[in-house]
Write a protein that binds this DNA or RNA. Sequence first.
DNA 1: TCATCTGTAATTAAAAATGTTACAGTACAA
DNA 2: TTGTACTGTAACATTTTTAATTACAGATGA
Lengths: 135, 135
Amino acid sequence: MNGQFQIAIHILTLLDQAKGELLSSEYIAGSININPVLVRKEIRNLRNYGLITSKEGKAGGYALGLPAKKILFSDVYKAVEHHPALGQAKNKPNPQCPVGRQINQHLNDLADEVDISIINKLNTITLADFSQKFY
Amino acid sequence: MNGQFQIAIHILTLLDQAKGELLSSEYIAGSININPVLVRKEIRNLRNYGLITSKEGKAGGYALGLPAKKILFSDVYKAVEHHPALGQAKNKPNPQCPVGRQINQHLNDLADEVDISIINKLNTITLADFSQKFY
DNA sequence: TCATCTGTAATTAAAAATGTTACAGTACAA
DNA sequence: TTGTACTGTAACATTTTTAATTACAGATGA
């Protein structure tokens, strides 16, 4: 996995702490210490899932799309574009070999199962829980 | 994560199916369709954890270090060099920001928790279970 | 109508993963 | 005792992925 999940959580935490005041991509990027365009890209994703709202134009910016208590970390995990945690099978094994012929299917099934157990875990954590740690 | 876990599982499955007969890195690489050196590198790892034994010299090769029933996928997961599934916090957030100052600690704690739930899941799967799918 | 934002595409740069080459060392067998 | 077929490992090159940058159109409010 890449750093998108961390960035998403960072953004959401900042927005929760802002208590409805709009934050700009530049401000957010300054806290994470990355490029503002990456913030906007990640927010595009999260907005597609209703987790963030945005306002264009002068004095525009971002706010949470839902109360922090209603935002499950599993929602964030699903929203972020990611590969399964175990990694997608990307080798092209030898189809002449009985193992090679089938293994990608079985590996992907396994990865799916693992992903489900991650989601079950993240179902138990809300943004409010996480954000609360910063007080 | 990278493809090492998949490679490790592929290797172990082949070795189980070989029923003790030694397989060469070239044969294994031919099934996975990767470079034999990568196979040897990954096996070095697995051997350090006792999951594989090797024999040098002519007619050398590799075999399982334990019965397939005794090899848990969680052991493989731990043996493979990997980042936590959620990804390690690698940004360098702004220490002037109350969120930035603490977030890496909290993100890493979260990643650890998730990793534990992955391991719990993988504890329930043995190499024998997986290998059985290929008959 | 200017200033300050978002939205997004296109490009470049940096980092990570994978592949390749090369060769020393080991073991067996003729 | 020498050739052959392996492993073990380092060094390097290539490819792929990720992140950063640049650029600019469009929205909004003062």
